[in-house]
């Protein structure tokens, strides 16, 4: 079973990360921006696991496990913020929420 090189995985990770960055920069719907952030976290996980295989150590996979746990916490708080903003402003467009005044 011949393996794909680590470089190919890192390149795929870079492509997915870039798509996530462009998503955050171009979309104005806060929920889609959140999903793009998840995509970026996911591509970082992919690179970590590829490095973990290249070094034959489990540390990268354990760190990926932590990243997934932190992402779960971040999504819960972020979506709670979105629900709270939507209650006040009836929108999820980030351009309409540009004032700090409640």
């Amino acid at each position: 079973m011949n393996d794909v090189s680590t470089n190919a995985y890192v390149l795929l990770s870079a492509i997915l990360f870039t798509i996530g960055v462009v998503g955050v920069l171009t979309r104005r719907n806060a929920i889609v921006m959140f999903m793009s952030v998840e995509l970026m976290l996911n591509s970082a996980n992919l690179a970590l696991i590829a490095f973990s295989r290249a070094r034959a150590e489990s540390d990268g996979q354990v760190i990926t496990f932590f990243v997934i746990a932190v992402a779960a916490a971040e999504v819960a708080v972020g979506l709670a913020l979105l629900v709270s903003i939507f209650r006040a402003k009836q929108t999820t467009n980030v351009d309409d929420v540009s004032t700090l005044k409640g």
Binding site: S13, A14, I15, T18, V21, V22, T26, A54
Partner: peptide
């Protein structure tokens, strides 16, 4: 945003193909 994304992709691709010298186990 798309231009900066392409720049970031070129950087990432350069690192992926030139910068990493990890032995494949």
């Amino acid at each position: 945003a798309i231009l900066l994304g392409i720049v970031l992709l070129v950087e990432g691709g350069f690192v992926a193909y030139r910068g990493i010298r990890l032995p494949d186990m």
